[in-house]
Design a protein around this nucleic acid. Structure first.
Lengths: 164, 164
DNA sequence: ATGCAGTTTCTGTATTGTCAACTACTGTTG
DNA sequence: CAACAGTAGTTGACAATACAGAAACTGCAT
């Protein structure tokens, strides 16, 4: 906010004086640092890479428990492209299943299998304590509430909608 | 949402009732969603992939303007391994330079070139407005302050130190 | 019907990331 | 000083990802 208009040839490429940038930096570093601890543990304890867990939980959270490839792509947190092949791998592991879309013969619906639902729960059970230790316990309750409240909009709104 | 305390075999794999998890989800989704908008723009406008900018700015922020490969690896936000090759590419683009470490003949110091410093500034100038629009403007000033304050610990402390 | 722009997913290919050896060097120990 | 465990960085084999274009289908306009 405060940096006037030319952060160009200063001595700092980061406008350290602006509040929103400090907030952004906190968000960026927090997610990166926590994920770097969580990811190896998740693979070791539950045998699920992070992108798989993402697909699994997006499906679980979907209203009908089923999502099309492009919907998965829009909601995905880690993989931007290559959803076809990511689903290939998860399907080959038996955690997910492709089904035809009733009215549209080019589309594909992806659905959780019972095994997929089971692995999803295992995965969450395995890595929730780590997230609590690495993230939750470093914040006071007031800070947790403030962050949750401030950032709720980023996961609450539908990524398919281009936002208001 | 309201499930009391046994997130295990409920109908929700996510213990939606705990505050720290909502905070974490906010952080995770905010960083992912913002990055998904920022990254293509950064490549289009400044020709720098996000991991490059990360390397460049870590070097810029380093006390002596120089970092060893393993220090880059420890501080890196996006790339966990393969720092050798990432530095290869950035070096080949002329933005960075390898230099021998005075007292240690196996080590390598990575230093910004003038061209690298220039591209770093261009990159930041290019994508700061986008971050402000996608992130900063979605938060009130109080929320910005709260988030910045709550998450300051994640980027302020040295990743080399295993933290207190 | 036929054609055609728009869509949904898949495939080919290049690039990037991951994991496990491997080389070169350091500092310590006998 | 010779041996050796530990460290720094690189390399090679392989998996995952990105991007462009192809194939199949839809809905609307002729």
């Amino acid at each position: 906010m405060s940096s006037s208009g030319m952060p160009k040839q200063n001595d700092e490429p980061t406008p350290t004086d602006s509040l929103w940038f400090d907030a952004w930096r906190g968000v960026l570093y927090a997610s990166a640092r926590v994920l770097h601890v969580v990811e190896p543990d998740l693979i070791a304890k539950a045998g699920i890479p992070l992108p798989w867990l993402d697909v699994l939980s997006q499906l679980f959270d979907a209203p009908d428990g089923r999502l099309r490839i492009q919907e998965l792509q829009a909601r995905a947190l880690f993989t931007r492209s290559g959803m076809t092949r990511l689903v290939d791998r998860v399907e080959q592991a038996g955690l997910v299943q492709r089904e035809p879309v009733p009215g549209d013969r080019r589309g594909v619906q992806v659905v959780l299998t019972p095994a997929g639902r089971k692995r999803l729960h295992e995965g969450f059970a395995a890595h929730l304590p780590i997230i609590e230790r690495e993230f939750g316990q470093r914040l006071t309750v007031e800070q947790q509430r403030a962050v949750a409240d401030a950032l709720a909009g980023f996961w609450h709104d539908d990524p398919a909608e281009p936002e208001a």
